[in-house]
Amino acid sequence: MSDERVPAILEELRGLEDPKIRAVNERHGDDHGVNLTKLRAVAKRLKTQQPLAEDLWATGDTNARLLALLVGRPKEFAADQLDAMLREARYPKVVDWLLAYVVKKGPHAEPLRAAWFADPDPDIAAAGWALTQTRIAKDPDGLDLPGLLDRIEAEMADAPSRLQWEMNSCLAQIGISHPDLRARAIDIGERLEVLKDYPTPPNCTSPFAPLWIAEIVRRQDG
């Protein structure tokens, strides 16, 4: 049974909508107009409530889904439920928060990573690559890192944009975290030139893997 508070919460979220924020987000492929600081304040007030999170998600409303990911309990989502949520998540911010705030903090991260990594849908595969980046950085045992570099070298240049971004992130993470593979990672990045011309604001690190690797390694060594 749906939580009776859901209509009032949706109305509150509509009241927090800012057309300027929505316009900026829509240029990046997203579909929400609530300032995220205000959204987090709503979540803080509601506190953690798994049934409410599931009901908010079921509305299909992007602001409500972002709120759901903040008030849910990561350990209480089933693996098949998370798989369905990823396939329903149509916008980048929802996918990012689903992975960061729920999947990574729950018990199903590794089996889902492996399943999504091998999925034929490039958007689902991108989520698998995103979780693989975390494994590369924090728990690389059992990963075939040279094999990952082979895949990246063969597939990244022609991959769809979201999948390409996550492959590139894995390439950079291998170069950053694994000195024995750093030269090869940099060489692949230099030859493929993926994101080489990506517009990067001043004082931000370029996503072009050779520059990204060099900058993070410099900071670590400094």
Rank of each mutant, 00 (worst) to 15 (best):
L13G: 01
L98C: 10
R87E: 11
P107M: 03
G29R: 08
R65C: 06
N35Y: 01
D139V: 03
A114Q: 14
K138V: 02
T132W: 11
G15W: 10
P107G: 11
T37W: 09
V94M: 04
A130Q: 11
V24A: 12
H32E: 14
K138M: 07
P74K: 12
K38N: 10
T59W: 03
D141T: 07
A23F: 05
K38L: 14
P19T: 04
A78Y: 05
V24Y: 09
E11R: 14
N35E: 13
K104W: 15
A89H: 08
E12F: 07
D18E: 10
P19Y: 08
V34M: 10
A137R: 14
A125S: 13
G72A: 09
R73Y: 05
R22F: 15
Q133N: 05
D144V: 05
A23H: 05
L52Q: 05
T132V: 05
D121E: 13
V71K: 12
D83V: 06
A79Q: 15
R14P: 01
H28K: 02
G33I: 10
K47P: 00
Q81I: 00
L69F: 13
R73H: 09
W57H: 08
V71R: 13
K38I: 01
E76A: 13
A68K: 06
V71N: 07
A126I: 01
P74I: 13
T59Y: 02
K75N: 08
R22G: 02
K104Y: 15
A115D: 01
T59G: 07
K47G: 08
L10A: 07
E17L: 14
L56S: 08
P122C: 05
L98Y: 11
A64Y: 02
L99G: 07
K20N: 04
R73N: 13
G29W: 10
E17S: 09
A79E: 15
